[in-house]
Simulated scan of single mutants.
Amino acid sequence: MDHYYKERFHVQQDLIKKIAPLTETGDILEMVREQLRSLIPNAMEVCVLLLDPDAAKYTSPLQCALYDRPVSCQSCKRDRPAVQQAIARKKAVVVADSDPIVRPDGSRMTVGPEYAMPVFVENRILAIVSVVIQPLTRYTRRDFYLIRDFANVLGTILLTARRQWEITREKIRISQTLASLTPFVPGSVRRMADKNPELLTREKETKQVSVLFIDLEGYTGLSATRPEAQVNAIIEKVFSSFVDPIHRSHGEINETSGDGFMIIFKDHEPKTNAMNAVKAAFEIASRCRSVSLSLAGELDLSDIGPMTVNMGISSGTALVGMTMFKGMLDTRMTFTASGSVTNIAARLSDHATGGDILISRTTRDLIEGLWPVYDRGKAKMKGIFEPIQVYSLLKPA
């Protein structure tokens, strides 16, 4: 049996070359229609009827050439028997004796047999390919194969166009949401939402994380002795130097306050998260020393001494995800890791002095053997009922 494999292969290759440069879905559909019309010798017209209710949002209907003026294929062919039967039966239908085409001026155009082929996308009929040939002619087996091939191509085109429209619509929705919340949303949240929009609506999940808190020592003295604009410039320069080390270590900056911020390490297994937190802490301490020296050369900071950062790291289970705080006047969105691990890291940061890096027992266990760790004994900390064991990554003076 002749299936015309060679010809069909070359026809599809030629079609792919012709539609590749096109970007608009309407132009692509028109090119497919023209190609199919040229391949069927007796074709009077080839129409693509878009049945997807959302089709108008990502393309426009084609115009039927059987009229003396532009008429949408949707209104021309939708009610014809071949199309209706194809939709009802969910398969290709041939009507041998087609009704004449009635033009707006009342004139009639006699047509021959009409063939309607559904275009399936994920088990849904998104379109119908309607082919009308000249009177007293008939379709060949070759015609049927070509029409089916083109219907399959159209399915891929429509699926891609619909998905692109859905992605664009979702990005616009996310963009509008974030735009209205911009004054209240941390930059890290906006970046994460740009990369992964579903984070905004995803439920929180329990994950093993490491949390690093940073606190700038001497901030109060700096604020008391310097103009606000100068303080802001100094803090911005210091904190900006920390961004690259944090990102290199796969950390996410969560919340910032005047003199510190919180960083979450959550994207790897527990040991790697803890290692990344420690690496970031050491590099942050080094950056702070460098920036402090450069600022000392630019400004007189002798009254407050060199700036240092105190840090606390804790590891463990946390509830991770988006948190939205709604008030009467505004809404604030942030990405948080909540639980005792966060509280302990914050308290260790508060407890540290002189640029120390304090870690919890859980973090010490995860990095054991990788860095020297110094026991600082137990300490009672605000908000924590029992004294906790404290360790330092820096050798005591």
Rank of each mutant, 00 (worst) to 15 (best):
R8G: 01
E198N: 15
T160C: 06
D105M: 12
F242M: 08
S241H: 13
I367T: 01
T201P: 03
M311N: 05
K204V: 08
L66Q: 01
L393M: 08
A277R: 05
S349I: 03
Q230Y: 03
W165P: 15
T362S: 12
F120M: 13
A96F: 15
I101W: 01
A116R: 01
R33N: 03
R37V: 13
S72D: 02
D79G: 01
L15P: 00
D2I: 12
T342A: 14
V48T: 05
T182M: 09
I147P: 00
E7G: 09
I313C: 06
L293R: 10
L222N: 05
Y5V: 12
L348W: 01
M31C: 08
A193R: 02
Y374N: 03
P41N: 12
K77R: 05
K90P: 13
T256R: 07
M109N: 09
L50K: 01
P227S: 05
S180Q: 14
D79L: 04
F144R: 02
M333R: 07
P41A: 14
I359G: 02
R69E: 08
V71E: 08
E45H: 07
T140Q: 07
K18W: 07
S257V: 12
L319R: 12
I87F: 03
F239L: 13
I235E: 04
V320W: 04
Q134T: 14
A82W: 02
R78S: 05
V231I: 05
S223Q: 03
L36T: 02
P113I: 07
R226Y: 06
V189A: 06
L295V: 13
Y58C: 02
M307V: 04
G260Q: 05
V131G: 01
L200W: 05
V309E: 00
L51H: 02
G221W: 03
Q164N: 14
T363K: 02
G354K: 06
T177N: 09
P387E: 11
A86C: 04
K90V: 11
P21Q: 07
P53Y: 09
A277V: 10
H250F: 13
F184G: 02
R376G: 11
V93C: 11
P306A: 12
A127G: 00
R37Y: 12
R190G: 09
G26P: 05
N152F: 12
I234D: 00
I263S: 01
V83N: 04
R78A: 10
D259F: 07
K279L: 15
Q35M: 13
L36S: 01
L66P: 13
L39A: 04
T342W: 09
F261L: 13
T363S: 09
Q134P: 03
M311I: 11
D105T: 14
S98A: 15
T363M: 09
M333F: 07
P306V: 07
